Simulated assay, not measured.
Amino acid sequence: MNSERITEMPSKYRHVEKMSTVEVLSNINMEDGTVADSIKQHIPQIGNLVNIIKEKLLAGGRLFYIGAGTSGRLGVLDASECPPTFGVSSDVVIGIMAGGDEALRFGFEDAEDSEDMGWADLNRYEPTVNDVVIGIAASGSTPYVIGALKQAQKRGIVTGSIVCNIESPISEFADFPIEVVVGPEFITGSTRMKSGTAQKLILNMISTATMIGIGRVQDNKMVNMQISNQKLIDRGTKMLMEKAGIQDYEKAKAMLIAYGSVQEALKITQKL
């Protein structure tokens, strides 16, 4: 495996403390603008991973994200947004990070150094060959993630990875490695910046494309979203009125609340 870590290479920007605020912001923005293009060339690999995730979820499996630091937080974030956005159970997409939930708010960066702990945290969920495990690590060398993927792969569980270095150690244990090189960070080694942005964009792509593929979206609408506040009730009511041809707002709202989602309400209207 390649030992060079592009994510740790020196920034091309020098003496940033002497830049004006506008210069700092402009340079960060310029670097951020390169991230989407870096991802574009990896869409086929991302697509292959999504296709296997769809297959596993439709068969009753689960999707796990596992990471440490920023990478772990991004995985937990994406997983936590799937139930309210797509109406799936909270045990369908699961985010695991080194240090546990407390590490979401407070940095326990040394928690990433144990291979054994990575598998131990994942194994609490009793993963099976019906599941998919995606390791997320900007460096591609985080022991916590390596340990989880290594043990999952040994047990025949499909593995993927999202990293920002080429030929990384983590990729050795990923059946579907995604290695998006975004180059040195604006602040040397600060992978919460471009690397984190790349990971966030890829996670958005994976979860959204997967949920579309398993029928949780119709047309371009979140028909299975949880109606958990007034904004979402209003959005769902208008969506139901449009799709079912209901003219009465209060009638549509009552149906939405009664059946819990636009999709379930639509099923009823189609039977009437």
Rank of each mutant, 00 (worst) to 15 (best):
M193K: 03
P184Q: 00
R105N: 14
G215L: 10
K200C: 05
S228H: 08
D219F: 15
Q226I: 06
K231A: 12
W119F: 15
V180D: 03
E167P: 10
G160P: 02
M211N: 08
V145P: 01
N224T: 06
V217S: 09
E126Y: 15
G215C: 07
M205R: 00
G107M: 12
T188K: 00
T197G: 00
N204V: 11
T128R: 09
V181E: 11
V145W: 02
Q230R: 10
T142K: 00
I202H: 00
R155N: 15
G107W: 04
E112R: 09
E126P: 14
I136P: 01
N130K: 14
F173S: 04
M211S: 04
S171M: 05
P177E: 11
N123L: 11
S207C: 07
S139F: 03
L122M: 14
R155I: 07
F106K: 14
L203T: 01
F173T: 06
I214R: 06
S195P: 12
A152S: 04
N130I: 12
I134V: 13
S114Y: 00
A137F: 01
K231G: 14
L149Y: 05
L232T: 07
P127L: 06
E109D: 11
V133P: 03
E185S: 07
E126L: 11
V132T: 13
A152N: 05
G147R: 12
G118T: 09
L149V: 08
D234W: 10
A148V: 13
A111I: 09
Q151S: 15
F176T: 06
D113W: 11
Y144M: 12
I134L: 02
G215D: 02
A137K: 02
M205P: 04
S168H: 04
T188F: 01
N229H: 09
G189P: 03
S228D: 14
P177G: 01
A137S: 10
A198H: 00
G215E: 05
I178M: 04
T128P: 04
R155C: 15
P127I: 05
F108V: 14
T197P: 00
A209K: 00
S161R: 02
P169G: 02
I166R: 11
G183W: 10
I214E: 07
Q151T: 15
M193N: 01
D121A: 11
C164K: 11
A198S: 04
V145F: 07
D116R: 04
V129C: 13
N220K: 14
M205V: 08
I233Y: 10
Q218V: 14
I146V: 13
A138T: 01
Q226G: 10
Q199F: 01
V217Y: 07
L149Q: 11
D110K: 15
K150L: 14
M222H: 09
Y144S: 09
I212T: 05
C164I: 08
Y125L: 08
E179I: 13
G147A: 14
L203I: 09
E179D: 09
I170N: 04
E185Q: 07
D234I: 10
I166H: 12
P177H: 06
M205Y: 12
S139T: 02
T210Y: 06
M205C: 06
T197Q: 04
V145R: 01
R216K: 13
V180K: 00
K200F: 10
S195R: 07
A137C: 10
N229F: 05
S207E: 05
L149H: 03
N204W: 09
G160T: 08
G156P: 11
D175L: 08
F108Q: 14
N220C: 13
V217N: 06
E179P: 03
E167R: 13
Q199P: 00
